[in-house]
Simulated scan of single mutants.
Amino acid sequence: MTHVLILVAVAVVLWYIPAGRQRHGAGSSAAAQARRLRTPLVRLADLVGIQTARGRQAQQWAAGAAGEKATAARLAPLARQGWTVLHDRALLTGRANVDHLVISLTGVVFVVDSKLWSARYRLRVVGGRLLHGSHDVTERLRGIRHEARCVAEALGCPVIPIVSMQGAPVDGGELVIDGIRIIPADRLLPVLRTLGRRKAAVKQHPGKAAARLFAPYRRK
């Protein structure tokens, strides 16, 4: 009976303690979604060691937020050098967001998607399909393909989509599938710097337009 009363008391406390406020910046929308999923009952279940579907989803969103923050830290030197580096930005239509929108000094535009996948399985391309171990994960690139297309249409210039992969080893150190580059996270900066030296096919640097058009994301 005592244990039941303690759990009830903890549940009441958790009900009145907010899971946290939404902030802006890298990983903010993913972190906010994790907080939404961690209802008082979910937090109580976590506290007593009971796994729930919502709890697992919250962990996945939280891991995604951590991955985006790690990528933002890697991109910080570029921002200090004058590159345009925008994190967690909303597209003009729909509910999707861009993890990282990066524009070089010459105006080359990149959409960078942070991924944190299991290190147990290697990433490789076989027959035009992306495999994580033996699992076909090609469809998981649909998001960044859509984001790059939307950004290109809004800015009126080409966009290079890049997946910054944490965890899973990338076969050969870099994969390209359907125009999307997949690289290990620790190679992100050298790849961006190399590609960013190209002369962009734009009349005006798109940095200011990107900052104006793509507002910080707020989950609807």
Rank of each mutant, 00 (worst) to 15 (best):
N97F: 06
W117D: 03
A96C: 01
V109N: 10
G133I: 15
R120D: 12
K115N: 01
G133P: 09
F110D: 06
S104D: 07
D113K: 01
L123W: 06
Y121H: 14
D99S: 12
H100W: 11
G133S: 14
S118K: 05
F110R: 11
W117E: 03
T93K: 04
S134D: 14
V102W: 07
G127R: 10
G128I: 11
L130D: 05
G107A: 12
V125A: 15
V98Q: 05
V98T: 15
V98G: 03
L105R: 11
V98D: 05
G133F: 07
L105Q: 08
K115Q: 03
V98C: 11
Y121C: 02
S134W: 14
S118T: 10
V112G: 02
D113G: 00
L92W: 00
L131T: 08
D113C: 00
T93A: 04
G128E: 11
L130K: 12
R129Y: 08
G107T: 10
R129H: 06
L92A: 02
T93E: 03
L92T: 04
L92V: 03
G94E: 01
S114M: 04
V98H: 04
V108N: 01
H100L: 14
G133N: 10
A119F: 05
S114G: 05
L105M: 14
R120S: 15
V125Y: 15
G133K: 06
T93W: 00
V109C: 13
V108G: 01
G127Y: 14
I103V: 10
